[in-house]
Amino acid sequence: MNEQRTMTLLTVVAVVVWLIGLGWSVLTFRQLHAAGDQLHRRESALASMRALEAESLHYAAARARVRAESGQLAVPNDLAVAQLPGARTDEARMRRASLGEGWTQLTQDLVFDDVSIAGAMKLADVLESQRPPWRLAAVEIRALPHAPGIGQVAFTVTAIQAEP
């Protein structure tokens, strides 16, 4: 009789555990279904955020590299005089813009009238090849109608320098 009661109790326990397991399985299945959508959204958001992280790192890397190459800048007018002897240039004031964190962007306009266009292009190469370099930010070339290879050349060059 006692054993019968024990068996009944065990059977009830087994059935209850089974039912809990089954009920839980149904809940888990529903959770999984919902979690699938949520996971998809999270994956999409994470992918977007990682792309932004990569972009941010790219900017940081550019800053780091520029700063690593920082040093004494050549004077553009001096290079122009060396490359285009006799060329008439309009003296323009060098503009400075702070980039923050102790860095400044320098901008200089170089305008040459009736100059050899090939010579001007060579000057551009020389400016770009300086260490630290001057970069061309804008170029305008106007050829003279009846003088092949000669024209008006305007360069805007920029460089980045640590603030003193």
Partner: peptide, 17 residues
């Protein structure tokens, strides 16, 4: 950040030249 880094980007990638 991209706007602030534009000068540096230009420095890294001399597109005009």
């Amino acid at each position: 950040q991209g706007l602030a880094a534009a000068p540096y980007q230009q420095y890294m990638d001399p597109i005009v030249s």
